[in-house]
C-alpha cells in the first residue's frame, strides 16, 4: 500500500512516523495522545451520543458530526473522541485520526484504506492486538460516515 491514496494531513502524519526510529515513534504517539482535544461541553454531558469501540483495549468512545462551511461547499465531517488519560496508546491513535481526518469530506474519509494504521510502523512495539483496536477505530469512523452519507443521499 502506498501513501498516495491518503488525504494530505494523514499522509504527512504517516511520513512523520515512518521517518522515525521505533522509540521515537512511541514518543510521537504520546504527543498525539496529549494533543487529542477535549470533547465540547454539549457532548461531554451526553455520553449517550458517543459510541464505544469495543475492540479497543481501553475505553474509547467516538462520534461524528457534519457541517457546512458555506452553502456552496461540500459538507465536512467533524470527529469527536473520548478516552481516559490512563490509556495513552488508545488516545494517541485517536489523536492521529483526529488530526488526519477531522474536517475532511465523507468521500475523502471513506477512501482511506482500512489497513492505514499499519503504515505507522508501530505494530511491533505496541502488539498486533492494539493495532486491531486502531483499525477498528478507523472502521467505526468509516461506517458512521457511510451511514450518515447514505441518510442524506
Amino acid at each position: 500500500m502506498s501513501n498516495q491514496t491518503l488525504p494530505a494531513a494523514l499522509a504527512e502524519i504517516v511520513d512523520d512516523f515512518q521517518a522515525l526510529t521505533e522509540p521515537e515513534r512511541l514518543q510521537l504517539l504520546l504527543e498525539f495522545s496529549q494533543g487529542l482535544p477535549e470533547l465540547p461541553d454539549r457532548l461531554k454531558d451526553h455520553p449517550e451520543l458517543l459510541e464505544q469501540v469495543v475492540e479497543c483495549q481501553s475505553p474509547l468512545f467516538l462520534t461524528i458530526e457534519t457541517e457546512k462551511q458555506d452553502p456552496g461547499s461540500p459538507e465536512s465531517v467533524r470527529l469527536f473522541f473520548k478516552a481516559p488519560p490512563e490509556a495513552p496508546t488508545t488516545r494517541g491513535f485517536a489523536g492521529v485520526l483526529h488530526e488526519g481526518l477531522d474536517g475532511l469530506t465523507a468521500p475523502e474519509i471513506l477512501a482511506v484504506p482500512d489497513d492505514m494504521p499499519e503504515l505507522l510502523g508501530l505494530t511491533r512495539a505496541i502488539t498486533p492486538l492494539r493495532m486491531r483496536g486502531m483499525t477498528a477505530m478507523l472502521g467505526r469512523i468509516k461506517r458512521k460516515v457511510a451511514a450518515s452519507a447514505a441518510l442524506k443521499a
Binding site: 512511541l26 504517539l29 495522545s33 481501553s58 490509556a87 495513552p88 488508545t90
Partner: peptide
C-alpha cells in the same frame, strides 16, 4: 504496565 506509553505520562 499494560499500556506501553503509560509510564511516560
Amino acid at each position: 504496565d499494560e499500556d506501553v506509553l503509560l509510564y511516560e505520562t
